Computed example of a mutant assay.
Amino acid sequence: MRIAIAGATGTVGRHVVAAARGRGHEVVSLSRASGQDVTTGAGLRDALPDADALIDVTSVETLSAKVAVEFFERATAQLLAAERDAGVPHHVALSIVGIDGVDESYYAGKLAQEGAVSAADVPWTLLRAAQFHEFAGQVMRRGSLGPLLAVPRALVRTVAAREVGERLVELAEAAPAGRAPDLVGPEEARLVDLVRRQLRFDGVRRRALEVALPGRYWRAMASGVLRGAPDAQQGSITFDEWLRSPDHDPAPAL
Rank of each mutant, 00 (worst) to 15 (best):
G203M: 10
R32F: 02
V27E: 00
A47K: 04
G41I: 08
A112E: 02
L199I: 07
S95F: 03
S144Y: 01
S118F: 02
L44Q: 04
V211R: 15
L194N: 08
V184D: 02
R74S: 14
I5M: 08
D193N: 09
D121Q: 14
A154K: 03
V192E: 03
D182A: 15
E134M: 06
V102D: 12
P246V: 13
V164Q: 05
L63R: 14
D231E: 15
E61F: 13
G98E: 06
V156K: 06
A51N: 02
A75I: 07
E241S: 06
V139Y: 03
V88E: 03
W242C: 05
L126S: 07
A177D: 01
R21Y: 00
V69L: 03
F71Y: 15
A65V: 09
V57W: 02
R141H: 11
D249S: 13
V192F: 05
R167H: 06
A150L: 15
A20G: 08
L213M: 14
A154G: 11
E170N: 06
L155D: 09
Q113Y: 02
L171I: 14
Q113W: 01
W124M: 12
A8D: 12
R190E: 13
R190L: 13
R157M: 08
L48K: 03
E26M: 04
H90Q: 12
P147Q: 10
S59A: 15
A86I: 12
V122R: 07
D52C: 11
E163R: 09
A189L: 08
E163G: 10
V225E: 05
G203C: 05
